[in-house]
Design a binder for these strands. Structure first.
Lengths: 341, 341
DNA sequence: ATACTAGGGACTATTTTTGTCCCTCTTGTT
DNA sequence: AACAAGAGGGACAAAAATAGTCCCTAGTAT
C-alpha cells in the first residue's frame, strides 16, 4: 500500500498536485452546491478557465453534474471525495507528519486533515468531520461528554452523524456561555451535539467574567451546582483552542489586561484559561465550568483547532496533558513542526 | 488496493497512459542501455523531443542517468521497473482479463504480461522473464524438465535467474533440433536452461522430418532410446507455440503440403504437431521427441507465446489440456478474448 | 417584471509542448 | 591517427494546448 504510493510518486511526481487540485474542486462544489463556475473560481483562487477544464474532466468521469442552476456532486462523486480524503492523507505523507508530531509534542495522538484553514475556509468543516468521527468511535454508552464553544466546536457538532447507535449520552457545555453569536455558544453547541447523538443535554446559564461574589451566589443555585458536579464526572471533553490575543479581544478585555497578558507570554486560550507556550496558566477567567484540575483528570480530551496561525496555541495546549488527542489541519501541523524543530 | 486504483483512475483518468509511457521508456532504456535519445525515440515510435521531456523527469526522479555514452537506468530505476510491472498489470485490469480468459478457455491458469509483442520487440523478454519466474516457483528438486526450441523459449531460458537453489534438475530438449539458428535449437536452449538451474542436461541429436526407416534406426541407438524413455518421465514441459503457416514455411514444407495443411485448418504448431483451432491434430512431424500422449500425461505444461498474431494458435493449444498454464502478452490475450466472445 | 447568476460558445493571448537542426564530445573502428 | 557513428545539450520556430475574457441565453428568486 505505502509502496504503491511511493512508486507512483516516483514515476508520476506531478500526480499529487493534480489530485489535490481536483479534490479541492470537487470538495468545494460539494460544500457549496449548486455553485457556478465563476464563484467556484473565486473561492479557489484559480482561473475560470482552469475550473472549466477540470470540471469537464470530472463531469466526464461522472463525479459531478452541470445543470443550469450550477454544478453539483453526484453520488459517485461523494464517495470519491470520502475516499480521496484518506488517500491524500497518505499521499501527502501526513501519516509520517502525525507520527513525528506525536513524538515531538509527546502526546497520545494527533490527527491531521489535509489542507490549510488559512487558505481554505472549508477546511474547518473537514476538521470538524474528522473530529466528530473520532469522537463517535471513542465514546461509549452512558458517557458524559463536555464541549466548549466556538466555531470549530460548532463544525464538530454539526458534522456528527445521526444514528450513532450510542445510548444515553449526556452532553454538557464545559463552560458558561460567551456573550456573542448564540450559534457558537457552548450551550447551543452542546444541545446540537446531544441531538445528533440522540442523547440529552443540560445547559449552563452563566455569563463569562462575572465578579467573585456573583459567581459564589450562582454556585449556590441547585441547578448550577448539580451541573458543575456532573462536569467533574465527565468521560470525554471536546474543546476548541484559541489564540490568546484573539480571544482576549473577543472577550473585550481591557487594553491594560491584554497588554499584561501578552507580556506574560499568553499564546493560547481554552476552557477559560490563558496559557503560555509551555502550558503554564497565565490567567484564569472567573467563570463557572471545568477547571484545569478537572481537565487533567478526564479520561479522553480532544482538542480541535485549525489554521497555521493557531500553531503556537496548539503547541501550548499540547503540553497540558500527555494523553491528549489533537485534531488539526496540515497548515497548523506543519507550522508546529517548524516551531519544534 | 484495488480500491485505490479505481479511485485514481476515476479522478486522474490520464494517469494510465502517462504511467505506461514512462514505463515503456524506462524499460526500453533498461534493455538497451546505454542508448541515445534518438535511437530510443525510434524504438518507441515517439518524437525525440517527447523522449527528452520524459527522460528529464525520470532523470530528476533519479531513475536514470544521462552520460555522454547514452542513458542508463539506475539501481532505483531497476527496482521501479520491477514494481511497475505488477502495478501496470493491475492498473490495466489484466487480472480481470486473466480470469475471464481462464474461464473462456477452460484452462488452469493464464499469465498476461502488459504490452504487445507486435508493437514492441522487447515484450518477448518480459514474457520470457515472467514464464521463467513461474517455472522457477513451480519445479522441485530432482525434476525432469523438457523444453522446446524457438526464440520465445530462448528468452525464457535466458531470463531464468541463477541461484534458484534447486537441486539435481535435469533438462531435456523435448524434440529433435530444427535445422536453423543454433541459438534457438531446443538442444542449445536446454543446455542454457540447465546451466542456469545448476542442473544437468542431455542432448537429442536427431534432425526433424526424417523418414520412418531412418527414425527407427535411430531409435535403436541406446543413447537416444534412453532419452526418449526419460522424456516420458518428465515432470514439467515448457513449450513454445507457433503459427502453423509460419512454422511450415520455416521448415520448408513443400507448397503442396502447406496448402493441404492450411486447407485442413491448421493454425498452431507445437512440439512437432500441427493443430486446428479446436486442438485436433492435422499433421504430425515424423521425428523423435515427446508425443501428444506423453504431453497429456505430464503434470505441468507451460505454453509460452506472445504477439496478437499468435492468438489463434494459442487458442488451439489451450484446448489440448485443461491444466495447462499459458504465459502470453496483453496483445495476444485481448485478441483471444475477441475471438471467443 | 427584473436583477442575478448559471453554463456554453467563441475568440485571443499566452504558455507549453513538440519537431528539428546544429554543435561538440565520446567511443569504437578502421 | 583519422574517422564515422551515435551521444547529449542548446536553440528556435511551429504547433498545440491551455488560459483569460467577454458575450449570450436561460433559468431562479425576489
Amino acid at each position: 500500500m505505502e509502496d504503491i504510493l511511493t512508486l507512483q510518486k516516483k514515476i508520476i511526481p506531478e500526480m499529487t498536485e493534480i489530485l489535490e487540485k481536483r479534490y479541492n474542486i470537487l470538495r468545494n462544489i460539494y460544500y457549496n452546491e449548486p455553485i457556478g463556475r465563476r464563484t467556484l473560481a473565486g473561492n479557489l483562487g484559480i482561473g475560470e478557465r482552469i475550473i472549466r477544464t477540470e470540471v469537464n474532466i470530472l463531469k466526464k468521469q461522472g463525479l459531478l453534474e452541470i445543470k443550469s442552476v450550477g454544478m453539483n456532486v453526484t453520488e459517485d462523486g461523494k464517495i470519491i471525495i470520502d475516499q480521496l480524503k484518506g488517500f491524500i492523507h497518505k499521499l501527502k505523507g501526513l501519516t509520517n507528519l502525525e507520527e513525528s508530531l506525536q513524538q515531538k509534542l509527546k502526546i497520545k495522538k494527533i490527527i491531521i486533515v489535509p489542507g490549510d484553514f488559512d487558505k481554505d475556509d472549508f477546511i474547518k468543516k473537514d476538521v470538524g468531520k474528522t473530529a466528530a468521527e473520532f469522537i463517535k468511535n471513542t465514546i461509549k454508552d452512558n458517557n458524559i461528554i463536555g464541549i466548549t464553544g466556538g466555531s470549530t466546536m460548532a463544525s464538530v457538532a454539526d458534522a456528527m452523524p445521526y444514528n450513532t447507535k450510542l445510548k444515553d449520552i449526556l452532553v454538557l457545555p464545559a463552560r458558561g456561555g460567551i456573550g456573542r453569536n448564540v450559534e457558537m455558544q457552548s450551550n447551543n453547541i452542546a444541545a446540537r451535539l446531544a441531538k445528533r447523538l440522540d442523547g440529552s443535554y443540560k445547559l449552563l446559564h452563566v455569563p463569562d467574567n462575572i465578579n467573585k461574589e456573583a459567581l459564589n451566589t450562582l454556585l449556590q443555585v441547585e441547578e448550577i451546582r448539580e451541573l458543575v458536579d456532573m462536569l467533574k464526572k465527565m468521560n470525554a471533553l471536546i474543546f476548541g483552542i484559541g489564540r490568546a490575543d484573539v480571544m482576549a479581544k473577543r472577550r473585550k478585555l481591557s487594553e491594560e489586561l491584554l497588554t499584561d497578558l501578552l507580556n506574560k507570554g499568553a499564546v493560547a486560550e481554552s476552557f477559560g484559561y490563558y496559557f503560555d507556550i509551555d502550558g503554564e496558566i497565565v490567567r484564569e477567567s472567573s467563570t463557572v465550568g471545568i477547571t484545569l484540575d478537572d481537565f487533567k483528570k478526564i479520561k479522553t480530551v480532544i482538542g480541535v483547532a485549525c489554521g497555521s496561525e493557531k500553531a503556537k496555541a496548539i503547541k501550548a495546549i499540547s503540553s497540558l496533558k500527555k494523553d491528549i488527542v489533537l485534531v488539526t489541519d496540515e497548515g497548523a501541523a506543519k507550522e508546529i513542526l517548524n516551531m519544534v524543530k
